[in-house]
Nucleic acid binder design. Structure first.
Lengths: 131, 131
DNA sequence: GGCTAACTTTAGCAATTACTAAATTGTTGT
DNA sequence: ACAACAATTTAGTAATTGCTAAAGTTAGCC
């Protein structure tokens, strides 16, 4: 059974009758929609979302966002559980994804959120109670 | 070595001298920042982000968003690789996370994006080239 | 009622992820 | 040069995830 058989039956059902041409046309429409959707940067977007989709990393970004200033790695430690190593891993993944920037200051490292991170948090906050 | 020892050395370093009271004060500030950050709905936000943080699911949401209308499960099949089961799993996870709504129409099921999903895609699109 | 079709759900497994511990890098102070 | 320390990186492992295949559910049709 080809994948378009089911589509054909659906269109038949939905419109009460349809020709092969109707099926091809709808398929072309769907492919166009897919192509338009595909223009977005799937790979980097998924990387960004994956970076934020973890409690430790989400909390780090939230803390930095709430702080509104750059923070030193040593300032996260008292707030997060986990080892220094875990925190460092988290910070690296977030930085790689473009959600944080890292700045060297002597032996200390300071992080701050990027505009992209801020935009996502604002979108999350703003859409929380929408239906 | 307590976790605040490093913070103390940092403040010492950063400000050129600090008392125990300074350390306590900064720690209190950080805890306040953390508390403010914690007001956000960590659990549901991470669920939403996890749902979107997967190529199959991201593509589904993108397609639905680009379509601007509800689509039947049978209309995704020609556009996505994977089995029907995989698509169904993806749709369920997205629906559970509040990114899609499901509607029964006879033997067909139709999905559309929620305002929350749309808000997140718009934020991703709008923040792509910001530094 | 029984058949088929359109999903969905359950079960199970391979691949990925998130962490810890240990080794390493880079910086400062002596 | 060396010791101490901040942070990162590497290596290894337990937990989670993303899929497939098979069984289950619901709706229409004869």
């Amino acid at each position: 059974m080809s994948s378009t058989d089911r589509l054909e039956r659906y269109l038949e059902d939905d419109r009460g009758g349809c020709t092969d041409a109707d099926v091809s046309e709808r398929l072309a429409e769907l492919e166009e929609i897919d192509a338009a959707a595909g223009e977005s940067f799937l790979e980097t977007d998924v990387e960004v979302l994956s970076a934020l989709a973890n409690e430790t990393r989400y909390r780090i970004v939230r803390i930095l966002h709430a702080a509104g200033e750059e923070l030193c790695v040593c300032e996260f430690a008292p707030l997060l559980e986990g080892s220094d190593s875990a925190i460092s891993h988290a910070l690296s993944k977030l930085t790689d994804a473009g959600l944080l920037t890292r700045r060297k200051d002597g032996k200390w490292r300071k992080y701050r959120t990027t505009a992209r991170a801020n935009a996502l948090l604002v979108a999350l906050d703003g859409s929380r109670s929408i239906y």
